[in-house]
Design a protein around this nucleic acid. Structure first.
Length: 835
DNA sequence: CTGTGCCCCTAG
DNA sequence: TGAGCTAGGGGCACAG
């Protein structure tokens, strides 16, 4: 905050960082945009009350600031109160505008206290002390600014020559056509090595940084334009990389920080840099008193800081760690991206690289790093090479996973800054879109106080007819079920009719609907909802993007478009979750309850429609938005054709845009229980090679040891691919007997009694159905790393054999007593584990 | 031995 | 003020 000549009041300065098409970095300092929010005016309020109220508010704010640094006290806290006519977004208002007061304040940090004071009650002139409910007082300042200026995240911005200081002169281009592409952003990936003591994790208080590798890349380019390794002490030359050696660690750190400022990257990346490399460097520089070090950002005089962050969401669970600020640069930690976006068994850089890049790290065990450092220029060269590779891999991952492009597209679609996508949850994206749509219709978002209430009922899972099916199973899905329900039935904050609302607004029965959960919503004829409009926009945009994608040849533009269609889909699906987030920003359980209520009704109706119209079709399972139909046709193509016909026919019984679509055929299909099944999947009909699809079973879960997952996978392949259930049984028995006889390192497994039950179950007739269910006996060892030596069992290549269809589960036979010795081994290992 | 509450992870 | 949602299988500790 600083005064600026020409502006009547001190105002915040917004900094926008960008890159021109030619790759020049730009920083805009924008003045003149001030924060504001609204309060609902009490009955009888008018122009005359604004002046006394403003004086009252100004004085109250000043009282609160007493003791603060006078240098940061603006001459005026309140920048003006204005009467406006608008509507609350919450609840159908019958088109009646209410009187609100727009409260402008001089700094973002004044919004919260000003709101609190007004909410609690201030004197409104002769009306006396009146509480005033706040609106839009919890909108992030950047989001407010972007909505008011018509900018979305990561869009191209144009400025007229000269008048660029005024925020009103900004022109944001919608990211389309010529404005679709990305500028040549500079990315810097780095990795550090420390000389730890034996068996102790390196600590910045004691252990030196001995190497830092840095790789710089221009977005869109194939190869990095810079590869540098900073080493402590001499290091033999590396091909294709610059080596800079230093005799003192202080010089090393100083020089690296200087290097960052010169390269001036837009994006800083690496692996676990938030929780390790960056804090380590900053703390180490503190210990060594390298004063200039922490100025790694783009704002002069503002150092990077290490802060503890605790982020908790039900989606991502508890996630705590450190956050390193670096103003003007995006720090993109690839570990955190992978944790958010991908479900993996291991998140080590090595495992992740092997999985996505089919490439491994340089093999240097941690224990010998210090030895290598203490050797000669050649051993340190090996260290430098290792370090360089670890700096290179995150860049490769970023490219392979299209991370940056996807993030940019998400920022564009949801209208939030890119950094929000890395540090915030789902809600802020919905709020940003909702706010923009609401503004167009003169609607205001209330500030609701969240109170956890009763949970609401979710989706229906059709009771599975468990068994092995040697007949085609067609899968029919409602595409984008929840968004299309909200569109079809006009479910929205603005259309929700409170009890008694119908009479109040003089509405007849034709003007509103009653949802399966009993809530009332007005029809689109009376008022078209904001949420349906947002959702329609997202879905329509997605169809357009998919169409454009089909035409597009240029691979770079294809990436952008593909990233966008994904962002649009994810955004549409998160709107429902937003309305149901009880601790959230604008929960409306009437909407979420109605959505799931309609969903339950629909899946039920679909099953009935299908089975009554097509006697030869049987719905054997379904979850939320899908039904699995057993068809009495001999082949996959016929199943696909029939599936398509059924889907089309059913679609006719639901209002648009609700549509049931044929998705794929399973043949054969193994249905084990709710949310647990597997099948040979022919997607989209018959074209292409079938794929083994496995849901919910140990094969796809990460809380079993790999042996269990591999065993289940191996057995499923035998059963479904080779149609050889006996082979599966034999294989399972073999593995289990290997286990019992200690031919597999048992110390790394925890064995439960289930194991022996399984061992006998597999010898039973038709046991293949029970197989997958019964192999979950092998649990993770808590103490040891993933194990399971013979991790890739050699599949027996048995010839396909016909397999008879069974329905229902085979009985699990009596279980013989557990062999004494094996049980002992097991419990011993278990005891060991606990100690 | 069974029931219950908690945790983890998945499906959608 | 910061965090999308529910349904459901299965392991496991613990009570009775």
């Amino acid at each position: 905050p600083r005064g600026f000549p020409g502006w009547p009041h001190p105002s915040p300065i917004l900094r926008m960082f960008g890159v021109t098409g030619e790759g020049h970095s730009v920083c805009l300092h924008l003045h003149g945009f001030s924060p504001y929010f609204y309060v609902l005016a009490p009955p009888g309020a008018g122009e005359a009350h604004l002046e006394p109220l403003e004086r009252e508010l100004e004085a109250a704010l000043r009282r609160e600031q007493r003791g603060g640094n006078p240098k940061f006290q603006p001459p005026k806290n309140v920048l003006g109160l204005t009467l406006v006519r608008k509507q609350s977004i919450l609840g159908f208002q019958g088109g009646l505008q209410s009187l609100f007061v727009r409260v402008g304040v001089s700094l973002p940090r004044l919004v919260a206290p000003a709101r609190r004071l007004l909410e609690r009650g201030l004197r409104w002139g002769n009306l006396g002390v009146q509480p005033a409910p706040p609106f839009e007082a919890n909108i992030d300042f950047e989001i407010r600014f972007m909505a008011d200026s018509g900018l979305v995240g990561c869009c191209w911005v144009e400025l007229p020559p000269g008048g660029f200081r005024c925020w009103g002169a900004l022109r944001g281009h919608p990211p389309e056509g010529a404005w679709l592409g990305l500028p040549p952003l500079r990315l810097l990936s780095f990795d550090i090595e420390c000389a730890g003591r034996k068996g102790v994790f390196p600590e910045p208080q004691q252990d030196p940084v001995i190497a830092i590798a840095a790789v710089a890349l221009r977005q869109g380019a194939r190869e990095p334009f810079l590869r540098v390794v900073f080493t402590l002490r001499s290091c033999a030359a590396l091909r294709g990389a610059t080596v800079r050696s230093f005799e003192s660690e202080r010089e090393l750190l100083q020089s690296w920080a200087e290097f960052v400022r010169i390269v001036d990257p837009d994006v800083v990346t690496g692996y676990n840099i938030h929780n390790f490399d960056l804090p380590y460097l900053i703390q180490r520089a503190q210990v060594l008193q390298v004063e200039s070090f922490p100025y790694l950002g783009r704002v002069r005089g503002v150092p990077s800081q290490v802060r503890d962050s605790a982020f908790q969401s039900r989606q991502l669970g508890r996630r705590e760690g450190k956050v390193v600020t670096s103003p003007g640069r995006v720090t993109l930690d690839m570990l955190q991206v992978l944790l958010r976006e991908h479900k993996l068994r291991s998140y080590s850089l090595n495992a992740v690289s092997a999985h996505f890049l089919h490439e491994q790290k340089e093999d240097v065990p941690h224990g010998i790093i210090t030895e290598l450092q203490n050797g000669d220029a050649q051993t340190r060269r090996r260290l430098a090479l290792y370090c360089l590779k670890d700096a290179m891999l995150p860049l490769r991952l970023l490219e392979r996973l299209m991370t940056l492009v996807t993030l940019v597209e998400m920022a564009r679609v949801t209208a939030v800054p890119l950094s929000y996508l890395l540090t915030r949850g789902q809600q802020v994206k919905v709020v940003a879109q909702l706010l923009r749509q609401a503004m167009q219709e003169d609607l205001l978002l209330p500030v609701v106080k969240s109170e956890g209430g009763e949970d609401f009922e979710g989706a229906t899972v059709i009771e599975p007819l468990k068994g092995y099916y040697d007949a085609p199973i067609a899968t029919l899905d409602f595409s984008s079920l929840y968004p299309s329900i909200m569109i079809a039935h006009n479910l929205c904050y603005t259309t929700l009719l409170p009890p008694g609302g119908a009479q109040k607004h003089g509405l007849g029965p034709q003007d509103f609907i009653r949802t399966p959960t009993g809530q009332l919503f007005v029809t689109p004829r009376v008022r078209r909802g904001v949420l349906p409009r947002v959702l329609e926009g997202l879905l329509a945009a997605r169809s357009r993007v998919k169409a454009a994608l089909a035409e597009e040849q240029d691979p770079e533009r294809r990436q952008v478009l593909d990233g966008r269609q994904l962002a649009l889909k994810v955004s549409a699906n998160s709107v429902y979750g937003f309305t149901g987030a009880q601790a959230g920003r604008l929960p409306c359980l009437e909407i979420s309850q109605s959505v799931t209520g309609f969903g339950r009704q629909m899946i039920e109706k679909t099953k009935q429609l299908v089975e009554s119209e097509y006697p030869d079709v049987q719905v054997v399972y379904g979850d939320t938005d899908s039904v699995m139909c057993r068809l009495k046709v001999p082949s996959v193509p016929e199943a696909a054709a029939l599936g398509r016909a059924v889907a089309t026919w059913v679609s006719g019984h639901f209002p648009p845009p609700i549509r049931l679509e044929f998705e794929k055929v399973y043949l054969p299909y193994l249905l084990i229980s709710k949310k647990r099944y597997a099948g040979l999947c022919f997607s989209g009909g018959s074209g292409g090679t079938p794929k083994l699809d496995c849901k919910g079973l140990e094969a796809v879960r990460r809380d079993n040891c790999p042996l269990a997952a591999n065993l289940v996978t191996a057995c499923l392949r035998r059963i479904l691919l080779h149609r050889d259930p006996q082979g599966a049984v034999a294989h399972a028995q073999e593995v289990i007997s290997d286990l019992l006889c200690n031919r597999i390192d048992i110390s790394q497994l925890v064995i439960t009694k289930e194991l022996t039950r399984a061992a006998s179950a597999y010898s039973a007739p038709q046991a293949h159905v029970a197989l997958a269910e019964r192999t979950r006996c092998l649990r993770w060892s808590r103490t040891s790393a993933p194990c399971c030596a013979s991790s890739s069992p050699s599949w027996a290549r048995a010839a396909p054999r016909p397999c008879s269809s069974v329905s229902g589960f085979p009985k699990i036979p009596e279980i013989p007593k557990i062999p004494k010795n094996s049980q002992k081994t097991a419990s011993k290992s278990e005891q060991k584990r606990r100690n």
